[in-house]
Every structure is written in structure tokens, then in C-alpha cells.
Nucleic acid binder design. Sequence first.
DNA 1: CAGTGGTCTAGACCACGAT
DNA 2: TCGTGGTCTAGACCACTGG
Lengths: 230, 230
Amino acid sequence: MLLYQEIRQYLFALIAKHPELKKLPSERELLEKFQSTRITVREALTRLEAEGVIYRQNRKGWFICPPRLKWDPVQKVNFGQLAQDQNFTALTQLVSFETAVAQEWLAQTFELNTASKFHNVCRVRSLDERPVMVEEIYCLASQFHDLQHKPLEDSITTIFAQDYGVNITHERSSLVVTAIPDDKADVLNVNSGALCLKIIRKRFNQHDELVDYNIEYWVHSAIEIEVDSK
Amino acid sequence: MLLYQEIRQYLFALIAKHPELKKLPSERELLEKFQSTRITVREALTRLEAEGVIYRQNRKGWFICPPRLKWDPVQKVNFGQLAQDQNFTALTQLVSFETAVAQEWLAQTFELNTASKFHNVCRVRSLDERPVMVEEIYCLASQFHDLQHKPLEDSITTIFAQDYGVNITHERSSLVVTAIPDDKADVLNVNSGALCLKIIRKRFNQHDELVDYNIEYWVHSAIEIEVDSK
DNA sequence: CAGTGGTCTAGACCACGAT
DNA sequence: TCGTGGTCTAGACCACTGG
């Protein structure tokens, strides 16, 4: 068997045997144990990372993945509630809030001209202290006046409905597997180029008007999508 | 800027400027051009691979990704039709057909005992000659007698309905990002450990009975999931 | 401060692909 | 046969983390 496969197998068995383990041995411990080099050890580690078995935090080490959050994009369930149902401690934090005139792609998405002003909310969500998702939300500044003074760590959908009388009735989501952009990797404290599931959500009101445009980057090993269809 | 980022940028621009290009320069050409080493060149290449911009075929080289197939798991659209609508030439091929008593996990999924016999159909699907998905389908041998003599390159759903009077009325899907198992990597002609989107589909009839259990492995850069929700 | 992962050099041999 | 990527060695210096 290939050496990096042997190392992978060893670590896989180690994880299975010690479910209470959180952190793996360091790369240098592993290369000594297997009389090998860092290149080979890292090949085994990145393989397990791709499989979603382990993850790294920048320069801190390699850690064992907890169970994935199961999420149904079709059901409109509150993130905090969903996490709690699955025995996670959930946390949402505001990263930044900006209001500015639209970039071209954004104006086009909303079918408006580039003079329109938009809010841009950036938030990060964690499960049991581990950041797992960062999102950008774009919505019209004229439609959501004073949004910056609302409790932006809570459900945006609820704020839209209760404070502005805007109800989301349907949405269109797109999912792709890709590498996370560097600025988002910093927020999640993952390595540059980490794998993610990128979800773009366009949400509409009953008049079929676009209310908000949402880009979510999920740490790939932290989530499992579940969809029911009739 | 980091060297591997420079190489990545160069290749990214090269691809943008020459959309007609199919294959990248070899790793050794690139390391000469950048006066670097294979480790660093491969860091740039695997980054672009994770982003879904390029892909490799085992020992053949690095290739530029064509547009992704857009697919809605909720709509029940025929694969061939969907591909044709998006200007792909689609092909489904039978890889293997076996009938055997159930392994434990399978029997449990169907809530039957391990003496039950199951069909196991393995198929591979290609877009414009590029294999993009391999799937395993499990269904009860007693329910689908002589299935091996049906046209298994066509829609299984249609065969179930027309030849056996079994109609799929609803299903439950689960999606995770992971690394593809080695036996499936061989079928798709991708490298060991390649990224994939793994979709498990349980499909039911009107009596809420499980009809088939389906595991799909999609090449991650070949697909984009689209979901509408009310 | 010592230990961690992040990046990088300069090679090597191999299996497999195209020809 | 020769070029490709797949695997591997034996180091190096750096930025950042944690005690």
C-alpha cells in the first residue's frame, strides 16, 4: 500500500478508536512515527480533510470533525433552533455592516441602475465555538432604512417581516462546491483555499420582487444538506 | 505575493484569455517558466482544481472545466433531456449489474432481514465524453424480477413505472461534499481522492415504501445544484 | 520561547499514456 | 519510447499560536 494511504488508515483508525479525541498528533510527530517526510504526511492529512473527517485551524493544528449540521434549504427554519435541535450551541456574530452604491453585478441582479444604494451585512455563524459559515447579505437601503440599528445577530427574515412588513414568500438557491475566497477564509479562521459549499440564495416577496441576495460559504465538512421532494 | 498564488493567477488569466483552450501546459513546463519546483506548481494547480476551474484525468494532464450542469434535485427531469437543454451530449453506460443477498446496512435501510436479495446497478454518466457521475442503485430483486434484461442505460424510473407498475411519488435526498472512493474514481477516470458531491437518494412509492436506494458521486466541478422553494 | 502549520527548494523513481 | 502526472525524500525558512 502507498505510504500516505497507510498514514491515512492509521489516523482513520485512531479517530474511530478514540471518539473523544479532538486534536491529531502534529505533522512532525507523524513523520517521525512513519519515518517519512512532511509532504507525504500532509498528503494523508489533506485526503482526510477532503473526506470531511478532519479539519485544520490556521497554524493551530489538525482537528477531528464533529457531526455535520443537517440542514434543509427548502424549509424555512431558524438557524439557532435547527442547531439546538441537533445539540449544537449556535452563535451568530456581525462581522461588518456597510451601505454603498451598487456594484454592477449587484445592480443587474436587482434590475436596478448602479446609483442605487445597498446595505451589505456580513455575518459569521458558529457551532460549539467552531465558525462554520460566513454570509454576505445584500438588500436595498431605501427599502430597509435604519437596518444597521436592528439586532442583526438575529433572524434577518424576522426583522424584514416585523420591522418593515416585508415577507419572504419564495426563494431560489444555487449550490456549488468550490474553494473559499481568502477574505472569507480569514473570518472562518480556516486555511487559504479551504473547501466550501457556496450557496447563493435569492429571496422574493409575494409580488415576485427580489428582496435580498445572500451568499453563504459553509465549511464543507460542517454541513449535510437534506431535501425532501414530493 | 506568494509564488503559488502568482502561478495560479497566471493560469487563471490564461484560461480567461483563451476560452478555446482545453489542456494546460504540463507541470514541468510551468516549473521552468516560474523557476520553481513541482511542489509549488502543484499547489497552484490543486487550488484551481478545488475552485472548480480545472480538473485532471489520471496521468493525462490538467484540463479546463466546461460549464457546470445545472440540476434541480426536486424536479424529476430526465438526465438526458436536462443535459440536452443545456447543450451537452449526454451518455449513460452500465458499469455492472449484480444480484446478491443484502449487506447489513442495506437490509436495515429497507427494514428487511439480511436474507433478502437485492439488485445492484452501477452506471456512469458522461457529458461531452467527460465522465461526471457514477451511481449505485439498490432495489429489491423480488420486486423487480428480470431487471437485468431491461434497457438499463435509460431511465430507471420509467422502467419501474412501465414494466413493473411501480411509481415513485416522493424522495428524500442528502448531499455532502467528500472525497470519492477509489473504486468510483477508477470508473470516472479521475485521480484517487478527487473531490465529489455525494448524493444519497431514497425514493418511495405512494404507500411510503422504499423503492430504491441510490448513491450518486458527482465530479464536484461538473455540477451546480439549483433549488426552488415556495 | 518552543511548537505549530504554511511555503518552498532540488532533486528522485515509478506507472501509465500517447505515439 | 518518451512525456505525463503520482509518489516520495530530506531538508529549509517563515508567520503565527500558545504557554
